[in-house]
Amino acid sequence: MRRQSKSFFAGALAIGTGLILSLCAPQPASAQAKGKAYDPPRLSDGKPDMNGIWNGPSALNADITAKVNGKSVIVEPADGKLPYLPAAAAQQKKNLAAAKQLDPMNHCFMPGVPRVMYVPDPFMIVQTPDFVAVLSQFMHEVRNIPVDGSKHLENIDLWQGDSRGSWDGDTFVVDTNDFNDKTWFDAAGNFHSDQLHVVERFTRSGPTTLNYEATISDPMTFSKDWKIRFPLTMNAAKDAQILENECNYKQEGPTVTEGTRADPHREAKK
């Protein structure tokens, strides 16, 4: 009897609380009502919160056509292959044959975009209403993404390109051009020209996931645009922090230097 009255009371309390809370809390204009899209934590400007330390699938850094969870991340074209123009396809094979010498990351040059999003080092997204920065542990690389309606720079070639961000509902869209032709997509010789144009879409998809999609356009290299899609996963440990992978090719070879990738928990147990 008492149990029943307790549960009844608890239920009434829950309903009452729920009503009060729902009246007070702003209703996000997401697909929450449909019960489908994840409703993420939000910043005070109402935008989904992407702040945190994230990792991309590092298998892609070796080969962007590698399978992740059993399938290619290249979702367009449907065959999961890069749609090279014939001359470019031949160039890629040459690149692959000499990849160790030619891979710009082996020279500790900037990884470029989107490669910096899936190198085997985490990155931190720092999000404010008019500026988003992506800070990679690899070579303390920085992506500057103004979110202020400003235009791309003109007549300049950049390793990471020039990025400008904007919001499309709950999706953060980054448009990047002004690339040089010096970066690769991976260590397998997959490359691009300075006509590269990348549009990325970031959408919070779960408590520790951020869905990442990138459309690659480069009419000098590929016969059509192609698209990759994969989740970025959050390192949500309370004391997680970006360390250093300082990369110096000529001195110490293309390997990590001291202090990197140290797992503080493993170290502490010694």
Partner: peptide, 16 residues
């Protein structure tokens, strides 16, 4: 106010 968690054996160029 979180504490340093890196052991003394870990050395970074910019420190912690």
């Amino acid at each position: 106010n979180r504490p340093h968690v890196l052991p003394a054996s870990v050395h970074l160029f910019a420190g912690d």
